[in-house]
């Protein structure tokens, strides 16, 4: 319990730092946002009005606390391009990106862990060579190209998959699955190709440890040695890796949403950048970082559940 409280305090501090850094980055970005927003023809009066309206005439620290205050109440400001609250735009797009992220993570976990176990059990020279080539290949393939390959070979041949656009879960579950599966695979496949090796290594490392010999000396069968003891212990290093994946997957959605024309956060981010919609860009960036920080928090909580040495320290 003490551990969780400590971790929550750390979470709050991290979030505060993240907000500060995001704010600072937008301050030092080149170009005057007001002039960019209003275009080259704007006159001084227009500029002054908008500056006042956005509070940009205030001292920096006041601006920062205004902005943080807005964050805390869910007010991320007004999008310039869409003339709508940023939070509304983000919430609209959220289900797509969250579904895609969860589906990708599920695929990675469901394939990489069993594959890692499978390979760990069959460790020999040949399988090492074969599987490390698979990893090399997985790392080398660009995701937009993999996405196009999947569209070409799966999307075009099976009507189950839709290759463009999104169907809400509430409209059709099958439709939503069909729309999300290929993009999820596009992000998941390179992740799996790399991460299953971490799983394998984590398991092989555990198998070397003294406690495994003790368990065997008790007459416990190899199946229990693997699935009760070794796997449970390996979950601690494996969790570290999967904590890192999440950030990569969130980043992956940005590109893949373009390839599959999915109306998610990633697409919104790219639109907002090309329109120099600063409040929107800032809102999305802070949203993405919060998600990543929060997932890391969840990972740490999971650690303490998996590892009594952390929980009881």
């Amino acid at each position: 319990m003490a551990y969780i409280i400590r971790r929550i305090i750390l979470l709050i501090v991290t979030m505060a730092l993240v907000s500060l850094i995001t704010f600072a980055v937008f301050q030092v970005m080149p170009g005057d946002p007001i002039r960019i927003m209003l275009g080259p023809d704007a006159d001084e009066v227009q500029i002054e009005t908008l500056t006042k309206k956005l509070g940009l005439d205030q001292p920096l620290h006041i601006q920062y606390f205004d902005w943080v205050g807005g964050l805390l109440t869910g007010d991320l400001g007004q999008s310039i391009r869409f003339s709508k609250p940023v939070s509304e735009l983000v919430i609209d797009r959220l289900p797509v990106t969250i579904s895609l992220t969860i589906m990708t993570l599920t695929l990675v976990v469901l394939v990489a862990i069993p594959l890692g176990i499978f390979v760990a059990k069959r460790k020999n020279k040949l399988s090492d060579v074969v599987f490390s080539s698979v990893t090399q290949l997985g790392m080398a393939i660009p995701s937009f190209w993999l996405g196009m390959l999947l569209i070409l070979y799966l999307g075009m041949n099976f009507s189950f998959f839709s290759v463009s656009g999104y169907v809400p879960w509430s409209t059709s579950i099958v439709g939503a699955l069909g729309a999300l599966l290929l993009p999820a695979m596009t992000i998941a496949i390179p992740q799996i190709a790399v991460k299953f090796r971490y799983v394998r290594n984590a398991i092989l490392e555990q198998l070397q440890l003294d406690y495994v010999r003790t368990v065997r000396s008790k007459g416990i069968t190899e199946k229990f040695v693997m699935y009760k003891h070794v796997l449970r212990n390996s979950m601690i290093p494996i969790l570290t890796i999967f904590g890192l994946i999440t950030a990569e997957v969130v980043a992956g959605t940005i590109i893949v949403e373009q390839v599959f024309a999915l109306p998610g956060i990633g697409q919104l981010l790219i639109t907002s950048i090309s329109y120099r919609d600063f409040p929107l860009v800032q809102g999305i960036v802070i949203y993405i970082t919060f998600v990543v920080v929060f997932i890391n928090f969840l990972v740490d909580i999971l650690y303490s559940i998996l590892d009594p040495r952390i929980r009881l320290s």
Partner: peptide, 19 residues
């Protein structure tokens, strides 16, 4: 193993499963 023959190892710090 464990039934007819019991075994004790040298390293008490690492011989038990930590979790």
């Amino acid at each position: 193993r464990g039934n007819d023959i019991g075994m004790i190892f040298q390293e008490p710090m690492t011989s038990l499963d930590p979790v």
